[in-house]
């Protein structure tokens, strides 16, 4: 499927366009940013709806609090900044005045993970999903491509309560078309398979598909691929079905293996249907400067890393079933 260079669009770009479309149909939607509107792509909304855009300056804590106040007055605020600031710097604000009261604030967190690239570890969030997932009642979504991002933005606006949407800086291949039916809490089956299931989110979904093709062609392994865009609430049933039907699971995410998608899947399988799980993710480390490609390679997040993990999982499955 990667024969022709696929069309690549960054999910942050799709986010910016989706906000404009959402703003056109929903007058309650307002957008806040903390001096990163050009990067998070909220500048398009700002230009189109200046009265409903609030530039908060370099003050993420204040931005989250202001968003909470707007939500308490019936608005649907999308508060945007880099993931590392949204989840890290403003964690307490998100917890205290958005999460605890269950306010209807949507956090559009761009520049998630290490594919931020050259800016280095200070700007690369490897733990934001873990932080946000731990807040009671917080919905966490990591879209895989531009189409899923647009649908997630609209679904988030429909959803009552706080939502964290993690977006990427770098272009990613378009996987879904307009017929895709995105639902919060629902994993999407992208490829059927019986030997192992690769459960991925965000940037690593297209890599998971590539890995599944290679596993089939080079190793004779039939891999199911699930796109689990909603990390929380997780699609327990899809994970359990994968465990039951394929007996081995690989998770793949651009995030620490501690607290993200891999952890979520392990929690479900450990409690309800234990099978071998291999986690592809960042191994308790900070990022560093480099191109996204260099970093994906250095941190073991490429299709070949998923292939190796899948082979390990299949081997473990056979070992335990023998």
């Amino acid at each position: 499927m990667m024969a022709d260079a696929p069309k690549k669009i960054a999910t942050r770009a799709a986010y910016g366009k989706a906000l404009v479309r959402l703003g056109e149909i929903n007058p309650d939607v307002v957008v806040l940013d903390a001096d990163l509107a050009k990067s998070t792509k909220t500048d398009e909304f700002a230009a189109r709806f200046p009265d409903r855009f609030f530039e908060m300056g370099i003050a993420e804590a204040d931005m989250m609090g202001t968003a909470a106040g707007l939500a308490a007055s019936g608005k649907i605020p999308f508060a945007s900044t880099f993931a590392v600031f949204a989840a890290g710097r403003a964690f307490d604000q998100v917890r205290q005045v958005i999460g605890y009261p269950g306010l209807n604030v949507k956090i559009g967190a761009s520049h998630g993970g290490i594919t931020v690239g050259e800016d280095g570890a200070s700007h690369q969030s490897v733990e934001d999903i873990a932080l946000m997932r731990a807040i009671p009642g917080m919905t966490v979504i990591v879209p895989a491509d531009a189409m899923e991002t647009e649908k997630a933005v609209f679904a988030a606006a429909q959803h009552k309560g706080p939502v964290y949407i993690r977006l990427g800086r770098s272009g990613v291949p378009v996987i879904f078309d307009d017929n895709y039916n995105f639902e919060i809490g629902r994993a999407a089956l992208l490829r059927e398979g019986g030997d192992v299931t690769i459960i991925a989110c965000g940037v690593l979904v297209s890599f998971a598909l590539e890995a599944a093709s290679r596993l089939s062609e080079e190793n004779g392994v039939s891999a199911r691929v699930l796109n689990m865009a909603t990390i929380k609430p997780a699609d327990d049933e899809a994970v359990i079905a994968a465990a039951r039907e394929t007996g081995a699971i690989v998770t793949a995410e651009e995030h620490s293996v501690i607290g993200g998608l891999g952890s979520a899947v392990c929690e479900i399988t450990a409690e309800r249907f234990p099978v071998p799980v291999e986690r592809v993710g960042i191994r308790d480390a900070f990022g560093q400067s480099g191109t996204p490609e260099e970093l994906l390679r250095a941190y073991g997040l490429l299709p070949e890393d998923i292939v190796k993990a899948a082979l390990r999982a299949v081997e473990r499955k056979r070992g335990t079933t023998r």
Partner: peptide
Amino acid sequence: QGLSTANGMAL
């Protein structure tokens, strides 16, 4: 945190 939320309400 209260003043930030109050600002949001005022806006």
